[in-house]
């Protein structure tokens, strides 16, 4: 099996998520759970100020280049060109490998301002971990089909109403749309269904550590009734391919 890469990890502090964690703690968790690399987004950038949070993560990346991969985190697409510039800055300065974006009913990602950001990510071949609903992904992928989007939680988040069936249905229409498995949901059969409908190449392992339990998330893949080859792709092979690791 290829190395395990956790594609969905948070660092920093959030009152909302009740998280206060640093790189050393995340690496200790990754060691215990058997994850070779963790793909990290900074909570300060997600919930407060973009540049401050991304710079904090950049320092962590420099100290732990062999373990951490970094997402450029964009708190809101309404930042427009500033978000595009931030993506290029963080790639050039810190070598960040992806983009993290969020959608909220207060600022839905389907507003036109998101298009340029997705185009920038596509231009740089950076996957976008998007906390988007399946319906939002459907709209975005029609606008920027060359963007590589990892649908965070594969529909298993409150705004998406836990609808992983719809997530799979939408992903089937868009070849560059992938499903991130991090979720509170452990519905019996959800991984098998995604693999059956999309193929294992389109499913990417994530844990949402330290919000969620990484062992539960890993076991959701390892306990599924799919081939060992499929498990290997989901747990790390797909991100290795997407990131050119």
């Amino acid at each position: 099996m290829s190395m395990v890469i956790d594609g969905h990890v948070h660092i920093g502090t959030s009152q909302f998520l009740q998280i206060d964690t640093d790189a050393e703690r995340l690496i200790a968790i990754a060691d215990a759970a058997g994850f070779a690399r963790i793909f990290v987004t900074h909570l300060t950038a997600l919930y407060y100020e973009m540049r401050e949070g991304n710079d904090c993560l950049g320092l962590d990346l420099a100290r732990h280049a062999d373990r951490l991969l970094g997402y450029v985190t964009i708190p809101t697409h309404r930042l427009g060109q500033a978000a595009c510039d931030e993506i290029r800055r963080c790639v050039e300065r810190y070598g960040m490998k992806g983009v993290k974006m969020y959608s909220h009913p207060e600022s839905p990602i389907t507003e036109a301002a998101s298009t340029g950001i997705l185009e920038t990510a596509a231009d740089l071949r950076l996957p976008v971990l998007g906390h988007f609903t399946p319906a939002e992904c459907d709209v975005l992928m029609q606008r920027v089909p060359e963007a590589i989007v990892l649908m965070a939680h594969m529909g298993g988040q409150p705004y998406a109403l836990g609808n992983w069936h719809l997530a799979v249905e939408v992903a089937a229409r868009h070849p560059n749309l992938y499903l991130d498995t991090a979720s509170s949901q452990i519905d019996n059969g959800m991984i098998e269904y995604a693999v059956e409908q999309l193929g294992p190449q389109r499913v990417v392992f994530g844990t949402d550590t330290p919000l969620l339990d990484p062992w539960v998330q890993r076991t959701k893949i390892e306990g599924a009734e799919i081939s060992d080859e499929a498990k290997g792709l989901i747990l790390g092979g797909n991100l290795q391919r997407l990131l050119g690791l």
Partner: peptide, 16 residues
């Protein structure tokens, strides 16, 4: 929560 949930996830939760 089996058969609605994957049983393995909660076994892992307890054992870890």
């Amino acid at each position: 929560g089996t058969v609605l949930h994957y049983p393995a996830c909660n076994v892992a939760k307890l054992d870890h």
